[in-house]
Design a protein around this nucleic acid. Structure first.
Lengths: 326, 326
DNA sequence: TTGTATGCGTTATCAT
DNA sequence: ATGATAACGCATACAA
């Protein structure tokens, strides 16, 4: 292993500093020689030595991401999308699956240029170290770095709007209500606000969890209601999956008898039991925003600090339709 | 940032090569000076520069792991445990969540010393590159690297043995039977073999999936059986969770009316609805084996190639007990 | 036991 | 437009 720029220089009959310039696409080298060097480099299977580059550049062009401990497919999808988004940049991403503390150690050791952390763990990270952006609900605390989040309130507003436009007057929300989790609370409150604004009947079902089965069980409650809703907003991907399954088992037709709109906007919504109409910031956009924010944060040097709430969008599929005539 | 060994040398009144030796715990430096240097280094907050070290050592002491695309909590737990196991070594681990191909590119770029891949993707990896160990069922193909796997047949033998010793004569297996997935097939076949060996009644329920709900549904089938089993072996963590839930909903007492033993041996078995008696290679042992194997594979230079089937063990908890008198 | 000198592969500065 | 050379931080062979 190990063809270096010196090897290329010998082969191409130039000095190795010229090779370096050519490889870095410097304007200081004549086009013909540049092409020749590039060709030779490719022929010889040259792979740049990261360590050497880092040593002189003082930059690694690597971003560290702390893998969220919460096992949710939506988060996993986000991480995958972030990884993909980095491919279009000069940066690479590495992951750590440890606690925030050990992850930080690892990233320091690798001397990453920046970090991405999720809401659950960003409290843990001392502010003075590596450039950082956080994703998720910020809580109250003042922080010294950019925070990216979805505008949950706006999302719920849009979902309710969409269903109301379809003629639904009784729209239920199924989600985790009574919790410390700020994200869940923001969603529930967004729903309430949108409902009140329109003078509709509020009907929140507390799942006391975020699992598939929590949605499945919630339908039992809904079925027993004296006054049935015609539409349900599911608080998350998993919850909505359980809702749909239970509804089907009970012979309730979607969307004819019941419309369902799910929170979270990930591609997997398409391949659910029924293609799911959903609301949320599309995960690829979210990923791109996070990536461009951390890169800007690193390269601007200035200490950006702001909270950016991304605008959600509603993706229409098959799970929601006009309210049934009653 | 950036206190270097030269800074330490100045502070400690020694040459920087002595510092280097001391930091590397060389026997060529007197104990007192070594201690002094170590103290000064700590005081100054010295952090070794990985890039520089790599440049001269030609080794990164970094292992790359390709994050499995299959979203299962058991795999996620394994990855976490592998990460933890590396902490006791001089190696660090980085993760890639991309396809095998792009992950490989990333790892080449980082010049990792070795890689860990999972059964699903190791077909993809060219054999000539970086030292590699694979985890999971090997399939038929001959490979040129070590493969670590659990002995699934032996696991099922143990589970059946355990239940038979408790007086169970009718033991059902709930798992994904009709599948291309070699792992699932090995488990199902292991069960069959153990049953036949004892002339017991074989009763396999095909879940056609590995999800929680697949286990939940399987109980319906079992309930309708003319001749009820007194024990169930759940094919995976998720499946067993569904089984337990459904059993409880139907008022079946565990383990009084029905014993349940789950495949997979992860700590989460303890905190299920009922503490779960389970069978499988404990995930921490599995992780340690994988880690020590890749390290040995790297450091021995020789091209190890073998398949190592780890011995599973049964962890007794509350979900299985003596067969009811009938 | 300690210090000196060289090189790892690259970028960047300065000559040419 | 190209080439020589000094860093970058560290390990190590060799000298003292």
């Amino acid at each position: 292993m190990g063809v270096t720029i010196k090897d290329i220089a010998k082969e191409a009959n130039v000095s190795y500093s010229t090779v370096s310039k050519a490889l870095n696409n410097s304007p200081l080298v004549k086009e013909v020689t540049k092409q020749k060097i590039l060709r030779v480099a490719k022929e010889m299977g040259y792979e740049p030595n990261l360590a050497a580059k880092q040593l002189v550049r003082k930059k690694t062009e690597v971003i560290g991401l702390i893998w969220p401990t919460i096992e949710r497919i939506v988060l996993a999808t986000l991480v995958t999308n972030i990884s993909k988004a980095f491919e279009a940049t000069k940066y690479s991403m590495i992951l750590s699956v440890d606690s925030a503390e050990t992850s930080l150690d690892t990233f320091k050791k690798f001397q990453v240029d920046g970090m991405i952390v999720f809401a659950e763990s960003h409290q843990m990270v001392p502010e003075d170290t590596i450039p950082l952006v956080a994703y998720g609900v910020s809580g109250k605390r003042k922080v010294a770095y950019p925070i990216i989040d979805a505008n949950h309130e706006q999302a719920m507003e849009q979902a309710v709007q969409y269903l109301a436009d379809l003629g639904h007057h009784h729209i239920a929300y199924v989600g985790h209500l009574d919790t410390e989790d700020a994200l869940q609370r923001e969603k529930a409150e967004g729903y309430q606000k949108a409902i009140k604004k329109r003078n509709l009947k509020q009907q929140s079902i507390d799942t006391s969890g975020l699992d598939w089965y929590d949605g499945y069980l919630a339908v039992e409650e809904i079925i027993q209601l004296p006054h049935q809703p015609t539409a349900i907003i599911g608080g998350s991907y998993d919850i909505s999956g359980g809702i749909v399954r239970s509804l089907h088992e009970k012979g309730v037709s979607i969307p004819n008898d019941m419309s369902v709109v799910s929170y979270d906007n990930i591609p997997q919504m398409e391949t659910m039991e029924i293609p799911m109409t959903c609301i949320g910031v599309p995960v690829d956009l979210l990923a791109e925003e996070i990536v461009s924010t951390i890169i800007h944060h690193i390269e601007s040097e200035g200490s950006d600090e702001f909270i950016k709430k991304l605008t959600p969008s509603l993706t229409e599929r098959k799970s929601a339709g006009p309210a049934p005539q009653s």
